[in-house]
Amino acid sequence: MRHALILSLAAVLLSCLWLPPARAVDSEPPFSNPQLQQRYENLIHEFRCLVCFDESIANSDADLAADFRRQVHQMVAQGKSDRQIKDFMADRYGDFVLYQPPVQPNTWLLWGGPFLLLLIALVALAFILRRRAHMDTVDGEEGS
């Protein structure tokens, strides 16, 4: 009884791990060159579907996502580099279409923010530790 429970739990957990990536929405014909196909698949995960938000064009079944996939597919077939394809989309739709925004003055805070917070936390920690050590010695002196 107990084994069955553990087994079924394990099965549920494993099935979560083994969910195949959702690719059913893409109707572009696969490239015969596996390298191009791989680049195409990586690229479509890099662009935001602007009408569905929080979904890449790889995962969205919106019309616009299909148009974007067609565009990316064409450009990969034309031999454009990843950089050129990303620039093409960002020139027309803005950096927001890229899931990974470029590092530039207006995104410094976005990229550096977590490190800035970490720095503030470390400084605060050092401050508190030093004060505590100081208080301990003061307590110790009082105790003796």
Binding site: L50, V51, D63, D67, F68, R70, Q71, R92, Y93, G94
Partner: peptide, 13 residues
């Protein structure tokens, strides 16, 4: 018809 030309204008709807 298929919206390809509109991509150059940054149209998304």
């Amino acid at each position: 018809a298929n919206g390809d030309a509109a991509i150059n204008w940054g149209v998304y709807g």
